[in-house]
Amino acid sequence: MLWNIDLTLVDVTIVTRDAYADAFKQVTGRPLVKLAPAMGRPDSEIIFETLAINGIVTGDEHLPRFIDALAHAFAARRRSLVKDGRVMPGAKDALKAVARLGGVVQSVLTGTIKSNAALKLNAFGLDKYVDFEVGGYGEEVYPKASLLQVSQGRVKQMYGFRCDGSNTVLIGDSARDVQTARIAGASMIAVASGRSTPTELHEAGADIVLPDLTNASEVVSAVAKLTTPMDRKAG
């Protein structure tokens, strides 16, 4: 079970923008004028585009330097996460409810770099429901669908699960998340809590579209519908 983070589980947009501005100045020595839109993309893509649209000629050294600066800038703002951010409605109860299903491993498939993903969930007490070691993150320069398959491999290695498209479910809020699941052959539960409308999520090919995560039993039912009891017990 893989969860997208931003606008699915939490909304920390203000803190993220401030951290990007700080990291950009650290790396380039210039103030950030324009931040590339996220649109469900990994931090690695956002960083490259942000540098480009601000007139920075990129080299091989820019990505690791920016990722390191972004991690430090975000960590420096950890106290602002709760003040300026929010947990999405129903997210905690949904995570708890899915965790009660036998044989389920919960992790994240996110565009956020790993250290910042952990900080985002920790700020709202959501980190205890996921195994960060088997997730997929924004510093890994893979297409997101490939990253989903990397995560499946990590689950198999660490848990011995048979982990493939038949027993992998992604929950996210964007049409791009849906496309990721479709390409990787995973099932998709889309929640209309982000910038994609229910119609857009249906048209992108989501198996199930929920308005949000406020009905935990509805989330569990959706997971059960897309997997089988054998999958959940034995992987």
Results as ranks from 00 to 15, higher is better:
residue 29 G to N: 08
residue 91 A to F: 05
residue 116 N to W: 00
residue 113 I to S: 09
residue 3 W to F: 15
residue 171 I to P: 05
residue 123 A to W: 03
residue 79 R to E: 13
residue 99 A to E: 11
residue 218 E to R: 04
residue 95 L to Y: 04
residue 175 A to G: 15
residue 67 I to A: 14
residue 183 I to C: 01
residue 222 A to E: 10
residue 84 D to A: 15
residue 220 V to L: 03
residue 147 L to R: 03
residue 97 A to R: 06
residue 223 V to K: 02
residue 212 D to H: 12
residue 9 L to A: 11
residue 123 A to L: 06
residue 176 R to C: 04
residue 33 V to E: 11
residue 232 R to A: 03
residue 207 D to R: 09
residue 79 R to Y: 06
residue 41 R to C: 05
residue 62 H to G: 13
residue 185 G to S: 03
residue 42 P to S: 02
residue 29 G to F: 03
residue 48 F to M: 15
residue 21 A to V: 15
residue 182 R to I: 09
residue 154 R to P: 02
residue 157 Q to E: 15
residue 69 A to E: 08
residue 132 F to Y: 10
residue 100 R to P: 10
residue 142 Y to W: 06
residue 34 K to T: 15
residue 56 I to H: 00
residue 63 L to S: 06
residue 234 A to V: 02
residue 27 V to M: 04
residue 201 L to W: 03
residue 174 S to T: 15
residue 231 D to W: 00
residue 118 A to S: 12
residue 33 V to L: 07
residue 125 G to D: 14
residue 81 L to R: 08
residue 49 E to A: 06
residue 14 I to N: 04
residue 145 A to P: 00
residue 66 F to I: 00
residue 70 L to Y: 08
residue 94 A to W: 07
residue 8 T to S: 12
residue 124 F to G: 13
residue 7 L to W: 10
residue 49 E to S: 05
residue 154 R to D: 04
residue 55 G to I: 09
residue 153 G to Y: 03
residue 202 H to E: 13
residue 6 D to G: 10
residue 229 P to H: 00
residue 72 H to D: 14
residue 165 G to W: 01
residue 179 Q to G: 10
residue 232 R to F: 02
residue 202 H to Y: 07
residue 48 F to E: 15
residue 166 S to K: 06
residue 88 M to I: 15
residue 17 R to S: 11
residue 199 T to W: 11
residue 86 R to T: 15
residue 205 G to A: 09
residue 11 D to K: 01
residue 96 K to S: 13
residue 109 L to G: 06
residue 126 L to Q: 13
residue 157 Q to I: 12
residue 212 D to G: 14
residue 41 R to P: 07
residue 218 E to F: 04
residue 114 K to E: 15
residue 31 P to A: 10
residue 32 L to G: 11
